[in-house]
Design a protein around this nucleic acid. Structure first.
Lengths: 200, 200
DNA sequence: CCATAAACAGGATGATTGTCCTGTTTTTAA
DNA sequence: TTAAAAACAGGACAATCATCCTGTTTATGG
């Protein structure tokens, strides 16, 4: 008589649940933006419930801050900082980084933009916690470039190294904005060619 | 007996009303972003009614597109394109433009970012009409730089001029993003110093 | 002067938002 | 084994959102 349909057992796995929520939120925030993504969107995409999300992240802001600190920062570290740190030269590292990014854009069908840049512009003015979180990532990136620049050429003073590192980060961020608006990797390619001359 | 309070006469002035709505919306969209600004916010700030707004702009999207075409594009024309077109050299023009922007940021208390960049990142992926509107402005700006570059140095070929113009636009856009995140004009100043070397 | 349309007023509406609350299940600690 | 906490389920909630609607006022063309 009783329904034999066993409802799938619930397996508590807080770390995996938290990680999945962060993964899904990071993707949605990048594709649609923070404000255009609802809590319910995240719940649906993560195939869970509001209770689970609320348990791990009390507010949407907490989720956003965690995405920046635990996903966006990590991606910047992996795709932008590490290649520059391990390459034969700063010029080589930046070239590799930009080529990888452009290649990824060309491989995908849509240009979602740089997740750091996206959140930076949308949230910096709205909330100082968001602003500081984003700024921390920008700073770490620029500092890594400065370190590599000074290691490569001892004649370069700190001020010039800082300026040059800022130009690299700014060029990439801006080129990514243009790439998003044109849905093309060409602005990335063009900036890469010019930066190669500057860093040569 | 009758209240003598004359309610202020209503003076129909559609052009002024439309202009005021656009002005207010442009400011709010830049300060808070498109999605974070409600129609009601615009109505309140413009000191008018929902009926008036709906009469001039049937949807929020229509308002947004008009802001881009009639306010953002005009500001880019005035602050970025014209100085470069009228300066003694491309290097001089870009330097003047960046110095003006940085000066404005330092004079104000908050860095709201570049209105074009703000809307580009927030709306490009969400809606193709927005994307095209934003891309048109980016294109016009880059084209103006290419024209000036080729006029300055006849030896420069089209491809290189395009790359260089892209770098200039990208550097500015990205530097503005960093400026917004750090609430400082320094990224603008640093990029300006480096661009001066590139364009020299 | 009159008819018609444009310009605006102001509220109704249904959908969506983020947050919170009360249960139930699972794990942990003792 | 048992009490308590953690992990989740699922819906309630008021607030806010963009849009649309019905009126009223003002301008315009004949």
């Amino acid at each position: 008589m009783t329904k034999d349909l066993e409802k799938p057992k619930r397996t508590n796995n807080p770390q995996a649940m938290r990680a999945r929520l962060l993964d899904v939120a990071a993707i949605l925030f990048q594709q649609r933006g923070y404000n255009a993504t609802s809590i319910h969107d995240v719940v649906k995409a993560a195939a869970t419930t509001g209770g689970a999300l609320h348990h791990h992240f009390a507010t949407k802001k907490a989720l956003g801050l965690a995405v920046i600190a635990e996903r966006v920062a990590v991606e910047v570290e992996k795709t932008a900082i590490r290649p520059v740190a391990t390459a034969a030269s700063i010029a080589q590292g930046v070239a590799t980084f930009l080529d990888n990014v452009a290649g990824t854009l060309e491989h995908n069908q849509a240009v979602s933009g740089c997740p750091l840049n996206n959140l930076a512009l949308e949230l910096s003015l709205a909330d100082s916690d968001f602003r500081e979180a984003v700024n921390t990532v920008f700073d770490r990136w620029r500092e890594a470039l400065v370190l590599r620049l000074k290691a490569d050429r001892q004649t370069l003073n700190t001020s010039d190294a800082n300026d040059l590192a800022t130009l690299v980060v700014a060029s990439y961020s801006g080129a990514m904005a243009m790439a998003k608006a044109s849905q093309s990797a060409e602005p990335l390619r063009a900036s890469a060619r010019q930066l190669a001359l500057v860093l040569a």
